[in-house]
Lab assay of single mutants.
Amino acid sequence: SEEEIREAFRVFDKDGNGYISAADLRHVMTNLGEKLTDEEVDEMIREADIDGDGQVNYEDFVQMMTA
């Protein structure tokens, strides 16, 4: 549901600035027990970053979650 997606976005957007940065993503993945290299984190950001601004905004996140 849209509310679940919004809630998930809030979990990833640690600093609440409306964007998921590589640092935000790394933090959440580490908490989930996933040890990722910087390259892996950057690749995840690139794949999710639809508009190419280097971070994942809510619209990018929705597209990723509903793809």
Rank of each mutant, 00 (worst) to 15 (best):
Y19I: 04
N31H: 13
M44K: 04
D49L: 11
Y58R: 01
M29F: 08
E2A: 14
I45S: 02
E40Q: 14
E3G: 07
F12Y: 09
D24T: 05
E43R: 15
G33R: 13
D24M: 08
D60G: 12
F61W: 06
D51K: 12
Y58I: 14
D13C: 02
N17L: 08
R10E: 02
E40M: 12
K14H: 13
K35M: 12
E59Q: 05
N31T: 12
D49W: 09
E59S: 07
E4F: 11
D24H: 08
G54S: 05
A8R: 09
M44P: 00
E40P: 02
F9S: 01
V41L: 14
L32R: 04
I50C: 07
T30G: 08
E4M: 13
S21P: 06
V62I: 15
R6Y: 09
V56S: 01
Q55W: 12
L25D: 00
E2V: 14
T37W: 05
T66M: 14
D15T: 10
A23G: 08
D38K: 14
Y58T: 02
E39P: 05
E40Y: 07
V62S: 02
A23M: 11
Y58W: 12
D53N: 13
E47N: 15
K14S: 08
F12A: 03
D53G: 07
I5M: 10
E3N: 11
A48Y: 11
E47K: 15
D60E: 12
S21R: 08
K14G: 04
V41R: 04
E2K: 11
D24A: 11
N57K: 14
V56Y: 09
G33F: 15
N57V: 06
A22H: 07
R6L: 10
T37G: 05
I45Y: 05
E40W: 11
E59G: 05
D60I: 15
Y58H: 01
G54A: 05
Q55V: 06
S1M: 09
D51Q: 10
Q55P: 04
V28S: 01
D51T: 11
D38S: 11
M29Y: 04
D51V: 08
T30H: 13
V62Y: 06
R10V: 03
F12C: 04
S21H: 07
D15W: 08
M64V: 07
V11S: 08
E7G: 08
E2N: 07
D13Y: 01
E47P: 03
M64W: 10
F12G: 01
K14N: 06
G18V: 01
E34K: 15
L32G: 02
A48N: 06
E40A: 11
I20Y: 00
I45N: 01
I50K: 14
V11E: 05
V62A: 03
T37K: 06
E47R: 15
M44L: 10
L36C: 07
H27I: 12
L25Q: 00
D38T: 10
L36E: 02
M65I: 08
G54I: 04
G33N: 14
K14V: 10
E4W: 14
G33W: 15
A8T: 03
M65P: 01
V56E: 00
E39F: 12
E2Y: 12
I50G: 07
H27L: 14
R6W: 07
M65D: 00
I45V: 05
K35H: 13
F61I: 15
G33M: 12
S21D: 06
E34H: 15
A67S: 13
I45Q: 02
E3W: 14
N17K: 09
D38N: 10
E3A: 11
E4N: 07
M44S: 02
D13P: 00
D42F: 10
V56N: 00
N57I: 05
R46S: 07
G18M: 02
L25I: 12
M65S: 01
N31S: 14
I50R: 13
L36M: 10
R10I: 03
L25M: 05
E2T: 08
E40G: 04
I5K: 02
V11I: 10
A22W: 11
G54T: 05
M44A: 04
I5D: 00
M65N: 01
M65Q: 02
E40T: 07
